[in-house]
Computed example of a mutant assay.
Amino acid sequence: MELLAQVEGNVNAIGYGLSAIGPGVGLGIMIGKALEGMARQPEAAGILRINMFIGVALIEALALLGIVAGFLFT
């Protein structure tokens, strides 16, 4: 219990760093699967690329909401 009492400062940066792992893994999986789909069916590359960019925007928006929430709830 004494160790917890010694932690000082803003711990939000640690929390956001840990929560950024989720969107990072999600982006890696999504982009990898989109590239795999483009390699398997080149004629569908346009549709896959558009859907991939929409997904990237939504995942990044959630990551930004996480950092904003970390600053708001201090």
Rank of each mutant, 00 (worst) to 15 (best):
V56W: 04
Q41E: 06
S19W: 00
L4Y: 09
P42V: 10
E2L: 05
G66V: 00
A13F: 04
A34K: 07
E36F: 10
Q41I: 07
M30A: 14
E43K: 01
A61V: 00
R49K: 12
I29K: 04
G46R: 13
Q41H: 08
P42H: 10
G37D: 09
Q6R: 15
A20P: 08
M1C: 02
Q6G: 13
G22R: 10
I29W: 06
I31H: 06
L4A: 07
A13I: 04
M52K: 00
N10W: 09
L35R: 11
I54P: 06
N51C: 08
I21H: 10
A5R: 07
I29Q: 03
P23Q: 12
E2N: 04
L58E: 01
P42C: 09
L72H: 14
M30T: 09
F53S: 14
L3W: 11
A69T: 14
L64Y: 02
Q6H: 12
V11A: 08
V56T: 04
G9V: 02
G66P: 00
V7W: 08
V7G: 05
L35A: 13
R49H: 11
A69G: 14
G15D: 08
L3T: 10
F71V: 07
N10D: 15
A34D: 13
A39M: 10
L3M: 09
G66C: 00
M30G: 13
V7E: 01
